[in-house]
Design a protein around this nucleic acid. Sequence first.
RNA 1: GCCGAGGUAGCUCAGUUGGUAGAGCAGCGGACUGAAAAUCCGCGUGUCGGCAGUUCAACUCUGUCCCUCGGCA
Length: 307
Amino acid sequence: MAPTRIVSILGPTGVGKSAAALDLPMDLPERPGIINFDSRQVYADAPLITAQPSAEERARAPHWLYGFLEPDQGLDAAGFATLAAKAIGECAAQGRLPVLVGGTGFYLKVLLEGIAPIPSIPDEVRQAVLERVEQEGPQALHAELERIDPDYARVIHPNDTQRNARAMEVWLGTGQTMTHWHSQAHPAGEFQALKLAFTVDLDELEPRLAERIEAMLAAGALDEARTLLDKCPDQEAPVWSAIGCAELRAHLEGELSLDQAKHLWLKNTRAYAKRQLTWCRREKDIVWVEASDPAALGRAVADWLAG
RNA sequence: GCCGAGGUAGCUCAGUUGGUAGAGCAGCGGACUGAAAAUCCGCGUGUCGGCAGUUCAACUCUGUCCCUCGGCA
């Protein structure tokens, strides 16, 4: 069976990826179905702040993997890849072209290229490691990893809380090192993907991001944050790491004026867009599209499907 | 007009007894294998307001001019 063909659109937040996907030309052999690969647009209670497609947009094509998680539920890259593979199957079965849209490059990479087959780590082990990092700092774990798995210790920085904790929990939970697992085969999805990426100058993007923040607030973002805070006060819950949620929360709790929250929100959004651009640059086989010319995206898709 | 306080990196400011300057934030670049809107790393030449003077040497002392902010008129 021939691999399923999919189109993916990446690029920084706020460049218009979602709109461009819906605006794909009508004369393509298949109408698009939209599948999300953004790690924050999965939360049901933050549709505005995470810029999920509106009801009107959703009416124009079937959408998958938007707004289906509770605020305290996490979704890791491997979990995402499983769900996305299923969604792609459903979409293709409807005779539609799967178009993946989102900002989490890591999720897309895992979907297309697979990930090391590390078994899940028992909760006790995880918790214990998390507590250790918190108390002793990542440097202590890193020092130990230098003995256990010097090759991996060399590529992660001693200050990196998440990666040191992860390497340690994998070692304690599986009895094997990260280096061992990374050398194992990565089962990858059976997809033939076109990777499109929007590019834009950050100085041009920033005013648009500022407008988007104003529009979100005008549409009720502050109420959304308030409701979310009522429902899920736990600051550690995954939703709260969404840009916008964190800043509005700080305002609601009296730590920032609304103006300060807006400035911080914009600043963090721009920094995030920059990281996304960095990610895209090092991705292989990217077809770049100028954000100022979204129609070029449709042409690139048509060419690829024809070729 | 007078008195006072200032004019140092895009912004806020440090700068010890004169030896041509450094932090935070911003910005830029990068990494990224199960938290990824996360996590982490690297990058600081700027007429030290202008001009003149003292000095081997001035951001640092002296004079003068310009500008900003207070207060008094």
